[in-house]
Design a protein around this nucleic acid. Structure first.
Lengths: 198, 198
DNA sequence: AATTTGACTGAGTGCTCAGTCGGTTTTTCT
DNA sequence: AGAAAAACCGACTGAGCACTCAGTCAAATT
């Protein structure tokens, strides 16, 4: 790991857990054992450092999803849904700090005035939500899911999974403990309703 | 509205939308038209001001839920669920700034070291989640809902509604546009599954 | 009328922090 | 080996910040 990568990684962890404003450049120095000047040699400013983090997260998330969903086929839309949720949880574990950072408001706030930031976030979120939309469309195509509006249903799915992870971030509940129940809930929510004969 | 209330209100709006660290005492002065000393006359510190905001939010949320759910009875658990979700959305509209503030991490972070803060947040969140748990238990009692674990199901419901509101906070999607679809999804998720004859 | 009290003021204080800069070390190239 | 380039260092700077304090003013009390 190069010095630059070490700095970016340390900043990711600190920004995610302490916040952007709340983290000082000296904090990052202490963790990485570098001098302050070194950080500014590699990144043009504190905000530039955050941009590098977001860009890296974007690249990683997009390629992870690429790897997990291209060229694969699933027994049914419901199976694909299960895989999409599982993959979300898996990613949130592997890229723990990046996901925690994305759950904070400061990136979204910065996005309002910084087009580069806006573009990174948009790429990440459309990747995450598009998968759920594809899931719903696939389920409807193979008849395993009811005829619900795909985009809206996808957003609700996304809100569910993301909301659950937020419970963990805020120390309100252990998201992992709800995983099985979440999958079961999603299945009931999405499955084609029976035809009324019962 | 007294001077003190005006300061608390202005701080609520600013903390919610700019963040705690990101808001300066001078920002609050500008909005309220007071001198800096005045704020410290009414509140012992910036953190004390945040505590006052949380205490006020707690009181308001608890009494709103009290008013909405005590002494009422519902046609079925599913109806009660609908009312619980509707009430959550209604509250999030009426107390917009307080809810936005609660969606930020700084209160949860402060809660880790400040017992007063922890107690306010715990009161607010148990109020919000307990309602959903009561909903599930009521639905199971009257036979309108399946035999799902009440606490876990309540947490998933909560994550859904809260996650949806977060989409709005982060400018990702208009939560209101998903309201009808959310209710329908929750009904499918919670309704007793048919007996297999179809 | 005199005194006390509570609300309010804003210049001042000491500290923290992002970012700079002149200089040193390490690496790479010839 | 010597020169050039890249990486690194850390004391310094100037701006911004939470909080203080000595004092003003108006209403309430005696």
């Amino acid at each position: 790991m190069t010095r630059k990568e070490a700095i970016r990684y340390a900043a990711t962890v600190l920004f995610a857990h302490k916040g952007f404003q709340e983290t000082t450049m000296q904090d990052i120095c202490k963790v990485t054992g570098t001098a302050e000047g070194t950080i500014f040699y590699h990144f043009k400013s504190k905000e530039g450092l955050l941009m590098a983090i977001l860009e890296h997260a974007k690249t990683q998330i997009l390629s992870e999803y690429e790897a997990a969903f291209t060229g694969r086929d699933f027994a049914s839309g419901l199976e694909m849904m299960e895989e999409a949720v599982a993959h979300y949880f898996r990613l949130a574990g592997v890229m723990e700090h990046e996901f925690t950072l994305l759950q904070r408001q400061f990136p979204h706030q910065l996005a309002e005035e910084n087009p580069e930031c806006r573009s990174h976030l948009a790429a990440i979120y459309s990747c995450l939500t598009d998968i759920f939309e594809r899931v719903v469309r696939a389920g409807q195509a193979d008849g395993s899911m009811g005829a619900f509006p795909p985009r809206e249903t996808a957003m609700i799915l996304f809100a569910m999974v993301d909301g659950l992870l937020r419970l963990k971030t805020c120390n309100l509940y252990d998201a992992g403990a709800l995983y099985d129940e979440l999958i079961a809930s999603c299945r009931r929510m999405l499955a084609k309703p029976c035809d009324g004969s019962c």
